[in-house]
Design a protein around this nucleic acid. Structure first.
Lengths: 189, 189, 189, 189
DNA sequence: GCTTAAGCGAGACGGTACGTCTGGTCTTACT
DNA sequence: AGTAAGACCAGACGTACCGTCTCGCTTAAGC
């Protein structure tokens, strides 16, 4: 009967939500750099231990906050035409990366992963962008015969947009995204 | 008489080099995350003021350390065949990102740029990857008529590799790189 | 219906004893400073609420643990000769202060009383040393006519030993104790 | 030539004094128990590191703050009559223990020494009360032949007063002190 | 060859976030 | 109703690094 009855006071769902909302708020208000565990706890009206008890690092917090929003933000309606389907996804991706809190969190995570191997593993495991991207690729695979099955295909789709945004260049405009989708469709025909 | 003769003791070139070498060493030894200004100064045998006097932030240091090595690491021999030319560049890029100190510095910079706007501007201005990438694109433009002139083309070339590496996926193998080059060549024909 | 039948589950005597024993153990093992309410509860296999319910502060716990042992440790056999009677008591006092757990608890209490007025009142009220001391003074008052009745007499008897031990000096040896007893006997003759 | 030129920025005397004054202030305002390193640093307008750099523990701070004031507070004028000399010292001692900040600090230190061996060593080494006490004993040794040379004599003089005050009893009045001095003079005649 | 202004090393300074610890309270299910 | 377990808020702990400052020394250019 191991694990049957959890003893002691149960975890407070209110505290959990308060923390995640505080993370969202602070990402908007002060940005990732100035977001501290202390600040999160205070904004959430929660003890510091409570944060550390459930999320060992700031990165774990971000992954949870980000993973909750990401699928919703990258959901695109189904489209029969593969080029339009890809364009729709790329447009959503660009908006996500440049305009949303979750996008900022995602970019921050990807950044943190470059100097903290622990976060690196976490991000690699979550494969945040990969899920939605592979879903779109699966859809267009019906009409485009040459879409590869490997992880590189998703990178080929998203990579240019991600790199451009993260490099600080102006986000790609609709024309560029349409052209990118067209080239991929042509290459994968 | 502004800007006339600089009075006082001139800047010590020895100190400047010692600092840059210390940065390289520490990037390898402890990684970006654990690299502190204090640590750099101590490793270089230099006062902390001396570091701050010449490089206002850690990012400035990295940009200088990175920009020195990057063109050398991404230099590829000229190739008449455009597909082979692109493949060569992509191979060098993957090796740079995954295997070299300068590559680690570049990734760290790109990461830091996501949560520090100051660094963002710095990185956007340096356009580190853009230079070598545009040079290669200029070369293949001779044989491939459809290579666009915009910044997006460079992102289309590099983005997939960069995203894959930064996401913590295993680096793309030679086959994937060759296929990517082939698809670009086909789309840009 | 006040004071009628106590409702609900009666207080667990087992828990009470477990806590007091845990206090004794921890005083020996880790000392007063590192003794925490949490640690006591865990060592006793008891919930923290149970401790707080019966002893509002660490000091109350110590007073109870100390008051139980003190009279026993300071009990000395009756002696017709007043000087020998006093010497016997002083020897027991020195042994109590330097060698026993209850002595450590007493010293810790006296210490805590210096920075916590609440504990101060508690200790002043318990008058731990005063009881046994006054008993011995009453005995010698039969043969020594000049023993005062005030509280200062007990302090005159015990104070030097207590101060020496609490100051961290080596405990007074038998010779010193005998001489002290002799001087008191002479002065109180 | 070791230790000749101290390198780096010299220690700030202003900061040192500010910290010691803050300790004095806080002892009065909030008492020892509620006096925290954080509070001291803030009250002194000083960084936390600066406190820890020079005084590893709260006890070291108190010893320094106490040792500075103690000799001044326990200084008594010379008196030809040994009984009056002792009475004068005892009066100063009672006033010091019950009425002065330094006295509160001394009692707090003695208390802390009971649960922290580190502090115990510190206090034993400083021998705060011992110095003034031995000085007075040396004076009366001219007229009283039987004053012992050992540490116990000082304890015999001070101990009763210290014990009484620390136990929370009302401080001994002038009559009691005079009687104590008389008894000692008689015993040491 | 003396002056002088700036660079240099060392390291203390006021701040502040870190992650851990304990205090005291509360909320469960069990007895 | 009392109990064991343990989560809760609060806040002090001692450490680390930040970027600035203040020393005494060194180094050249310019008088």
């Amino acid at each position: 009967m191991t694990g049957s009855a959890p003893q002691g006071r149960p975890r407070s769902e209110a505290a959990r939500l308060a923390v995640l909302h505080a993370v969202d708020d602070l990402l908007v208000d002060v940005g990732y750099g100035a977001m501290t565990m202390k600040g999160i706890a205070e904004r959430a009206g929660v003890g510091r231990m409570t944060v550390y008890r459930w999320w060992p690092t700031k990165a774990h917090l971000l992954v949870e906050a980000c993973a909750a929003d990401l699928p919703k933000e990258l959901a695109v309606p189904d489209e029969p035409d593969p080029e339009r389907q890809l364009t729709g996804f790329l447009t959503a991706l660009a908006a996500f990366l440049t305009g949303s809190d979750a996008g900022a969190a995602y970019r921050a995570l990807l950044g943190e992963a470059q100097h903290d191997p622990e976060v690196g593993k976490l991000v690699a495991g979550a494969d945040l962008l990969g899920g939605p991207a592979r879903e779109v690729l699966a859809r267009v695979r019906g009409t485009l015969g040459g879409v590869p099955e490997d992880r590189f295909a998703a990178a080929e789709l998203c990579g240019p947009v991600v790199l451009l945004v993260m490099s600080g260049s102006p986000a790609p405009d609709a024309t560029a995204l349409r052209a990118h989708a067209a080239r991929l469709a042509k290459a994968w025909a």
